[in-house]
Amino acid sequence: MTGAGTEAGAPPLLEVEDLSVSFNTRRGVVRAVDGLSYTLDRGEALGIVGESGSGKTVGSLSILRLFGLFDDVTVTGAVRFEGRDLLRLSETEMSRVRGGQIGMIFQDPLTSLNPVMPVGEQVAESLRFHTGASRDAARRRTVELLDRVGIPDAANRYHELPHSFSGGMRQRVMVAIAVACEPKLLIADEPTTALDVTVQAQILLLLDELRREMGMALIVITHDFGVVAATADRVLVMYAAQPMEHCPTDHLFQRANHPYTEGLLRLVPRFEHRAHKRLRPIEGQPPALTEPIAGCPFEPRCTHAVDRCAAERPPPVRLGPSHHSACWLAEERARRETAPDKPWEQP
């Protein structure tokens, strides 16, 4: 799959090609990511959605090659960042990329910060490591950054330990850490899931502003279509370790093609819903990732499935310049003007 058009010659910022990640565990081999491909241009924002366990986190952490220290992992495919395959870099080269050119924000702000290190120092240490800034310069820049992400009285709170900050404030600190070295790509893994609603909106706004200010590309991982709508230019839908659909965000809400995407959208509560239009959950469970899957992984739960779906894995079908759907029925489904079962399309 390719993303939006790139300037002739220049490679896109990020090019993930046929990425597969499996963990060797005591319970067997777990395929956490299976054949993931996408591209991302400079300054562009991609949302990755999918239910729990679909491989969103592993897929994104493997860009930075950040696996558990004690995991036995096999990674295949390519992750080209500015043309260089990150999977082939040495650990030393990789450590310049992590935090320097690619920043990362994690889901749980309560456990993401070192509990016994002053918050300011946790930002400054990254600056010093990547830019070689002096202690004083790093400290000044850190105060600016903390101020920018919305920590009140940043100069004084520099020395405080994380436990005196609220969840939202800690996530702001985490944002400051991730953008400290003005990375070209920011990966945010469910940056707002652990926060309450008002704080969620503020953090999303902050991410969007920073992205524009610094010209960063953004990958935002979420369960929440609201987050996608607020931050992403394009969306990648994952299911059971595989990419299902990849399209511009506005297509998602009007022209979703894949039956799985459709099912997910049906779970989104809408104001227009009347009492008789209940949310309809997708029947069934995602498949175990330890078993090989011959066909489409969604086939057992799909109401549109045909014989072929169980036997052969559907390739991504190109439906437009940057719209792909991995479904045997993709073209047929795209020809329908409006689907009869799309409650959210009602006026």
């Binding site: 930075l64 950040l66 558990g68 220290l69 004690f70 650990e91 030393t92 990789m94 450590s95 310049r96 990329v97 992590r98 935090g99 320097g100 920043g103 990362m104 994690f106 749980d108 456990t111 993401s112 910060l113 070192n114 509990p115 240490e125 990254s126 490591f129 990547h130 985490m174 850490i177 991730a178």
Partner: peptide, 20 residues
């Protein structure tokens, strides 16, 4: 040490580029 190394803040520290 094993328990501490598995905590999320260690992942964050690694995401800053620090070697093990």
């Amino acid at each position: 040490t094993v328990e501490e190394m598995s905590k999320p803040y260690v992942l964050v520290a690694r995401s800053k580029g620090f070697p093990r």
